[in-house]
């Protein structure tokens, strides 16, 4: 199973985004600054946008899901119950997972964006997909929810998971690292080796690197372990 970007190029507003590479099974973190073209690449990966040139090849991928940045964009149900049912899931366990028990009959717009994001992620992460694309999965969440979400994403074992984010504090354990540099998607390699070449790395990681400390991965636990490490 793999997803391949074959020299894709897409013009967006006033600049060009280009990318090439193969996404193998595992968790891929695609980092990039705000406005660098992450959402465009996520849409292309999901098959919802066609690149201006190049193509996207899928090998052995059946089910595909894109989690869009804003959770309200996924709404199709007029109650939380019907919204969860639209994901072919049972309401009670999903609501419990989202920390919204007993709110089956509530209007989705009665939730804050953070609550809606929690509900949306609970729906998405309760199912399994061959290709799961998460566009800014940590937006609108508080620190505690970001950490919980990172743990849940990091525990995905099957299929290809692509995380497009500019988040640099709470990240999951990932297998591969990509970075959008000057409008071009670049593969940095497997984690932890790829962390060294990460140009716009999180500041905490940069500080650790300055001290010659290299974490094993990107989760909060890995960063803490590296920060508290007394010797290598």
């Amino acid at each position: 199973m793999e997803l391949e970007f074959v020299d894709i190029r897409v013009e967006r507003d006033y600049f060009l985004i280009q990318g090439a590479g193969i996404f193998a099974p595992g968790i891929h973190l695609v980092s990039g600054r705000v406005g660098s073209g992450k959402t465009t690449l996520a849409m292309i990966a999901a098959g919802l946008k066609t690149p201006d040139s190049g193509r996207v090849k899928r090998h052995g991928i059946g089910s595909v899901m894109l989690s869009m940045q804003f959770p309200e964009q996924h709404l199709t149900g007029s109650t939380l119950e019907s919204e969860i049912a639209s994901w072919h899931l049972q309401p009670c366990p999903v609501l419990a997972l989202a920390g919204l028990p007993g709110r089956e009959k509530d209007d989705p717009f009665s939730l804050s964006r953070g609550e809606l994001k929690r509900l949306h992620l609970a729906c998405i992460l309760s199912r399994r997909f061959d290709l799961l694309i998460l566009d800014e999965p940590f937006s609108a969440l508080d620190c505690r929810e970001k950490m919980a979400t990172a743990d849940r994403i990091g525990s995905i074992r099957a299929g290809i998971t692509l995380i497009f984010t500019h988040e640099n504090q709470h990240l999951p354990r990932v297998d591969y690292l990509w970075e959008i540099r000057e409008s071009a998607l670049e593969f940095l390699g497997s984690v932890p080796d790829a962390l060294v070449g990460w140009k716009n790395k999180p500041s905490v990681l940069a500080d650790l690197h300055k001290r010659g400390v290299y974490p094993k991965n990107l989760s909060t636990a890995d960063i803490l372990e590296a920060a508290c490490r007394t010797h290598d």
Binding site: A46, L48, M65, L66, M68, Q73, H74, L75, T76, S86, W87
Partner: peptide, 10 residues
Amino acid sequence: RRTRVAFRLK
């Protein structure tokens, strides 16, 4: 347009 995408995804 977004709703159409949501329908397609689901």
